[in-house]
Design a protein around this nucleic acid. Structure first.
Lengths: 209, 209, 209, 209
DNA sequence: AATGAATGAGGCTTCATTCAT
DNA sequence: CATGAATGAAGCCTCATTCAT
């Protein structure tokens, strides 16, 4: 079904994608309007449903598309495979921040998809996320030297904790700079510093003295 | 305007409160329907708007009501005024968790209010939250002994970080147990353990060896 | 029925009158809201209907009140009983203009009452107007010297024509200065000039060379 | 947007136009109900807004439609290009009267549009009117022989005055015969006579003895 | 493949009036 | 006299989806 859409001529395909991303990024799923999308994409009502069947399928397609797009961005920054895990994680956080800043609309859509989604479709979003997580997270945690951790700290759980924290920091900044993404660039140094301090504390807390 | 509502006979007042909380807890602001509320509260369309003017005002009133309700719960657990700040924070986290578990619908509404709120009313929600924060957070941070922190760690920022982290943990569990709050009770020991481990690491990271 | 209202304590009576005039002046009858009136007058819903029975009766009372108020104003300017009819008419027009300017809200209400009234109540408004006309117009036309008119001009119809014209001029200015009544004062000289020119032409057209 | 409406099949288009004109002619803008329109036009709620977006746009479209319709009628009566300006104006007034009589509903709608319009849309109505005025009025005033006017009479202002007067006469009759347009035909001779007398007086007043 | 006409339920809100207290 | 709770129809408008062309 989506095959047909993907074979569409590039121009119209782009118009549909852009209008959809725009709408789903700035409004939650239920508030987003297919009417607005077709108007902005300058396509007919029918064609949207011809390609996507219904709003939900359109939404899931767009979310998938954006996730893939972000994934592509990630791949441009090859992670250093060795070295201390905390350095790797810090690096990851900064990459995430850069990508968010460089793709504000897409990032916002993904955020919306995770936060403001009705229960009918939340599971499918979670599913997509899990798949990506399974692909991306393990490499980060590969080749960890568990001996580096001090006694009483479970390395696996500790790292989960770090990830959770970075995510919280990420969400905090994303919300804070919502609508004024430009300023984020200027404050990047300050933010990086905060990231570093945080990681430093965690590292200090998990490694032996 | 709300005065009138509050002088209403208890039965009807409760029906309206319950129906509203129910609806706003399970659906985001825009998805929530005043029609559903009046139907479940068994009142007429008009009377709801007679008391609250419009949907937004109703929502803000309900959010305020729920926040106050949670605040009342909090007050039942007097914080130990002295002792190590990390112990205090850990205690707070557990209280928060207990209250969330004991008031799942109300907690969910508050969560919704923070996450799924359109930009028209987000500021007013933030405002309510700030006021409460200003009242609740300082006592927690009172009488901190800054000399306990190791060199290179700014106590104020460090504690901000701890709070952010606990919040992230809170959100994680709230989402995880959404809809199956009963199980949370059974898992409470496990969760407490996780809280403790986390705090331990942070403490370890912030205090000198 | 209105008797009761009129015996009300002066303060509340004034609040009701002012709120009603305000509302009916700025909105047409159907758009005007009794809800808004009670809110602005700071009275209860019930009391308004207690005194006036329904919206229509309230409106008619207010219109009558305003008409009487304007009449009172008129009486402050005793018309010169003798002299040329055109001079008298010119004088009348200027008085009307001054009163309109001095009582913009009330004048606007009266204008609304004549223009934007649903057919259910239009006749009763017309009726009020007729009664006042019957009282006011004849004195103006008293003691006209028909011999002054040139042959072929029916004095009665000619004067009707003059009145119609002055009214048109009045409506023109009222509309033109709607919302910026202050400026009308400054332009009064210019307007007076236009009145005079007009009257001059009509006089010239109706009197023999 | 209106394009789509205009390409609609003639039958439904007519039903929508008629129902709208009917409703807006007999009620002021705010009192007119889109519900009544769709019921009388036998169309669904949605389709009306599909074509016109909102009530205001529908109204403006209908006003424009009616103005154009009246303009078409006007063009059927080619004005005599030469001759005395007063004769031309008299002729124009009579044409206007005839057209009003022949198209009572449409004329009434246009009158409503000018008189009973909320301030939100009044400017746009004025704008439409101005555009038509700019097209229609100048030809009427072309080739005026200013030397015909007596000293002390500014030809331009004098003619403005004549137009204003004719309009007042027009409004007077339109209101007077509202709802019994048939009788207007029978009284046409009498009305023509009044027009003539009026013009005669003005002419007499503006030309030298 | 593509259009856009069509639906009608549901969205929030306002309304004048009544009546028990 | 006075209050304000209560009604529920009607207001305008939006919605996702279908289907004939």
């Amino acid at each position: 079904m989506y095959r047909n859409f993907e074979n569409l001529n590039e121009d119209k395909k782009q118009r549909i994608l852009e209008a959809s991303i725009q709408e789903f990024a700035e409004k939650a799923y239920e508030e987003a309007s297919t009417n607005v999308i077709v108007k902005n994409a300058e396509i007919s009502k029918g064609i949207l449903f011809h390609y996507f069947g219904n709003k939900k399928r359109l939404f899931l397609y767009i979310v998938e598309y954006c996730l893939q797009l972000l994934v592509t961005e990630y791949r441009k920054y090859p992670l250093q495979k060795s070295g201390d895990i905390f350095d790797r994680i810090l690096e990851l956080g900064l990459i995430k921040l850069k990508i968010t800043h460089a793709n504000p609309t897409i990032s916002r859509l993904v955020l919306q998809a995770f936060l403001n989604t009705p229960e009918t479709i939340r599971p499918e979003i979670q599913d997509k996320y899990s798949k990506l997580s399974n692909e991306f997270v393990p490499p980060i945690f590969k080749d960890i030297d568990p001996s580096k951790f001090r006694n009483g700290v479970d390395p696996k759980k500790a790292l989960e904790m770090v990830m959770l924290f970075l995510e919280a920091l990420q969400v905090k900044y994303t919300k804070e700079y919502m609508g004024r993404e430009q300023e984020l660039l200027g404050d990047m140094d300050k933010i990086m510093e905060e990231y570093k301090e945080t990681i430093e504390i965690l590292k200090y807390g998990m490694y032996p003295a």
